[in-house]
Structure formats: structure tokens, C-alpha cells
Design a binder for these strands. Structure first.
Length: 413
RNA sequence: GUGGCCAUAGCUCAAUGGUAGAGCUCCAGAUUGUGGUUCUGGCUGUUGCGGGUUCGAGUCCCGUUGGCCACCCCA
């Protein structure tokens, strides 16, 4: 058994994971994003500095053999900000980078939440305009749409922290108290109105007025208009109840949910215009924004949808299947068979054959179980071989020298 | 970190306190030159672990570990 909250990926599960990753990559590249990666282990301080003790509590951290406090990455953004702070001069702005890191957190596992998961991480760095916000949100939408989901399945709820900080400034709330009030607003959906009112005190009345009237801002209206121009407006709605837990967000924030409300957030992200500046020690000031989409909740959502599930399973099955199986009907033909196997593999076909002597029915059974389309029989026909199409059951005997040509014709459609 | 439910073969699950079973998977054969169907046979269990009650515990009690779920928190 793997450790609590960790997963083994047996071949079928690994093939499904590959399916999700390849869809993510394909969509990110469609948007002009390039892939990067970083270390799984980072200095503990990288997370402590910006996140505070509350998050350190769930960090997977330890002291390494050199006495250094280190932590398995709980998210990708600090690593990205660290890399960008050091290397941004090498790149023309804006940067559009993505990664598919495995991230870790130490806590009790539950539905949609383990101690490790993989996430698609996409970030735009060095662009302050709201066009970047809309571009990133579009990518997030497409990264879900690509699995066969539509606007009736999920929605991205978009908010703006500046909307709230301006409100708090107008209410003359001291800046030290902002973070705490934002957290209360973030939780207001999950808690009773009484409790929220109590925590907000004198701010309760104006805050609830905003929440009930559906507050918005010019920036948010602009993002929705932008998405409308892309034909994606149905996938988005302004919702100022979204605040997000992380302290480093500075502007636009958003989360993606399934419409039925059966799952946790599928993805979340926002603007963090100060983070690169902080991590570079003031050397590089770059506006930035990004989002992360985890494989666990998305996977649950795919498995709960018949169409999406079938698509994933079909793809995963094809990922594991071979194309050709060499049946060795006479043991004296083994060397002739492995010679042909090697030639076919050199041509790029996925080919397998029995590693030990076994009777013919079993070899055909194996060919079929491995998903082979063709079985090539090496036996009494030699120097000819029998090529059987396992789908149509049609079989024909051809000369050995015609094999490569015959196979490429048979498998070309 | 807190709480609820659960724990029997590789998987899904049976077994009024009375000698641990079935289906599927896997392996072999029926069929020594042809897969998907069928039939036959075979393998695997300290019933998660440790105590206790009892003539006797998979079953009841306590502890423990693990899983699932919810809370906390949310990257």
C-alpha cells in the first residue's frame, strides 16, 4: 500500500493520467504557452515568507541531511516567481508559461483531496492589462471544455480583490484589517448569515447589500465583454463572493466550479502583481497572474460523466494497446519471427510476441488481450506468413518480403 | 487537529456465536496451426493487527492501524 494520501498509478490509471496531461498540454500550446518545470523540493522559507503560518501547518516539510529546512512544493507559483525573478531578462515579455507539477500538502485526505496531486499551472507574466486576465481565463475554460464539458456543466466565477479593497478604503477600514475581512467574505457562502454578520460588525450591512445586489466593477465587466467576443460568455459570471484564500492575490481572482455543485473547485487563480517583486528582493517588478487546475477533482468529474469517461477510457486503452502480435506457430520459426518483429518496430509499429513457447490458441488470446489489430503467423507457410486481421478475422498468406508493405497498408486507416 | 462509518482471497461481496464460501480475475487443460463464446480443473486467506469475553469469535467488547466521508483549511 502507498502512504496515506498517495496514489499508485497502475497501467490503466497511468494511461488515464497521460490522457489528462496530453489534453492539458495541447490546450496550453494552442494558447501559445511554453512548458517549464522546477524542483519538487524547495527551501522552506520560499513558502513561509509569503504564505504565513496557517499554510506552513499543511506543508510537507522536513530537515534534510544538511540541516536545511525544506518543503515539498505545495503549489507552483512561488517556484515560478523565483525562477522568473532570476531569469526574466532572458525572455521577451509577456511570458506565457505552463507546467504540470506534482504538488504536496500534509493533511487528512478526503474526497477530491489527497496529499499529492498533479495540476496544470498556467501563468502570464509581465502584462498588466485586463486582456491578459481574459486570455488566461479563456485558457482555463478551454482546459475543461477539452474533456467534453460545456457551459451547462461548469462555470468560472470571476471576482476582483481591488473591488473589495476600494470598498474597504471608502469605509475607512485600516489596511491591517483587510485580509481578515476578505476571509470572512470568502467564507460567507459556507457559513450562516448570522455568523458572517457577527464577524463583519458594522460592515455587515454594506457588505450584504453588495453581495445581494451582485457587485461588479468596470474591470470585471470588461473581462466578461472580452469573453463574449470569444463566444465564451456563457462559461463565466461575475461573482464578488470569490476572494480566494491565498494572501498574495492582488486583483482579479476566479474559481471554476461544476454547475451541479457536487465537487470541490476544479480550478482557481488570479493576479499576483507584487509576488515577483517580493521574491526578487525588489530587483524585478513584474505584474503576473495564473491559475492551477488539479487532476483529482477533474478526474472525478470526468468519471461522473458518461461521455467524458468513455472518451478517456477509449483513449487510455488505445494508449496501452499494441498494433501487431507475432504468433510463433513452429518453434523453428522463432528467429524468423523476431527478425520481422525488429523490422516492424524499426518502422515505428508497436509490436509484441511470446517470450516463451506456448500453444497457438493462447498466442491468439494474448494478441487479442493486448489490443493487437494484426496477428502475423510464422509457421508451415514459411517463407510465407499468414497475416490475420483480428477485427475482421480475415487472413491472407503473403511472402515474407511483402510484410512491411502489407502491414502499413492494413494499418493505415 | 476533531468526529462518523467501515475493514473477510488480487477485485466485488457472502457466512442465526458452532470446522471460512461464491462470482470475477489469474494460471492450466478440453483444442499438440488460429482469438472473442463455452466447459473442466487449479492457486491465494494468520477474516487488517493486538488483547479480552466464551466450551467455541469472521461474528460480541477494548485498543491499535488503515480506508472512506464530513469538519478545520484550501495550494
Amino acid at each position: 500500500m502507498p502512504l496515506t494520501g498517495f496514489r499508485d498509478f497502475l497501467p490503466a490509471a497511468c494511461a488515464e493520467r497521460n490522457y489528462i496531461f496530453s489534453k492539458w498540454r495541447e490546450v496550453a500550446r494552442r494558447y501559445g504557452f511554453v512548458e517549464f518545470d522546477g524542483p519538487v523540493l524547495e527551501e522552506l522559507d520560499l513558502y513561509k515568507k509569503k504564505s504565513g503560518d496557517e499554510i506552513v501547518r499543511q506543508l510537507y516539510d522536513f530537515i534534510d541531511k544538511g540541516g536545511r529546512p525544506v518543503a515539498l512544493r505545495p503549489e507552483m507559483t512561488p517556484t515560478l516567481a523565483r525562477i522568473v525573478a532570476a531569469h526574466h531578462r532572458d525572455f521577451r515579455k509577456p511570458l506565457k508559461w505552463f507546467s504540470i507539477p506534482q504538488v504536496f500538502r500534509y493533511e487528512r485526505p478526503q474526497k477530491g483531496r489527497l496529499r499529492e496531486h498533479f495540476q496544470l499551472n498556467c501563468d502570464i507574466i509581465g502584462e498588466a492589462s485586463a486582456e491578459a486576465d481574459a486570455e488566461l481565463i479563456s485558457l482555463a475554460i478551454d482546459a475543461v471544455r477539452t474533456f467534453g464539458f460545456s457551459a451547462k456543466d461548469f462555470v468560472v466565477r470571476i471576482s476582483d480583490r481591488e473591488f473589495w479593497t476600494e470598498f474597504l478604503r471608502s469605509e475607512r477600514v485600516p489596511e491591517e484589517g483587510w485580509e481578515q475581512i476578505l476571509q470572512v467574505i470568502d467564507k460567507s457562502e459556507r457559513e450562516s448569515r448570522e455568523k458572517t454578520c457577527e464577524r463583519l460588525g458594522t460592515l455587515a450591512e454594506p457588505v450584504f447589500e453588495i453581495l445581494e445586489k451582485g457587485g461588479h466593477s468596470e474591470k470585471l465587466d470588461g473581462i466578461i465583454e472580452n469573453l463574449r467576443a470569444r463566444g465564451l460568455a456563457d462559461y463565466a459570471s461575475v461573482d464578488v463572493r470569490i476572494v480566494r484564500g491565498l494572501a498574495y492575490y492582488t486583483g482579479t481572482v476566479f474559481e471554476i466550479f461544476d454547475r451541479a455543485g457536487k465537487f470541490r473547485a476544479i480550478a482557481g487563480g488570479g493576479r499576483y502583481d507584487q509576488l515577483v517583486l517580493q521574491l526578487s528582493g525588489g530587483a524585478a517588478s513584474l505584474p503576473a497572474l495564473g491559475f492551477a487546475m488539479g487532476d483529482v477533482v477533474l478526474g472525478e468529474m470526468i468519471r461522473a460523466n458518461t461521455g467524458a469517461k468513455t472518451q478517456m477510457e477509449t483513449d487510455a486503452k488505445g494508449d496501452q494497446a499494441i498494433q501487431i502480435f507475432a504468433v510463433i506457430a513452429k518453434s523453428e520459426r522463432r528467429n524468423d519471427a523476431i527478425g520481422a518483429v525488429q523490422e516492424l518496430r524499426d518502422r515505428g509499429w508497436r509490436v509484441d510476441y511470446p517470450l516463451s513457447a506456448m500453444n497457438i490458441p493462447k498466442q491468439f488470446h494474448m494478441a487479442q488481450a493486448r489490443g493487437a489489430r494484426l496477428a502475423i503467423l510464422f509457421g508451415d507457410e514459411w517463407p510465407q506468413v499468414a497475416v490475420k486481421d483480428l477485427l475482421s478475422s480475415e487472413q491472407q498468406v503473403i511472402g515474407r518480403e511483402q510484410l512491411l508493405e502489407h502491414v502499413s497498408r492494413a494499418l493505415s486507416f
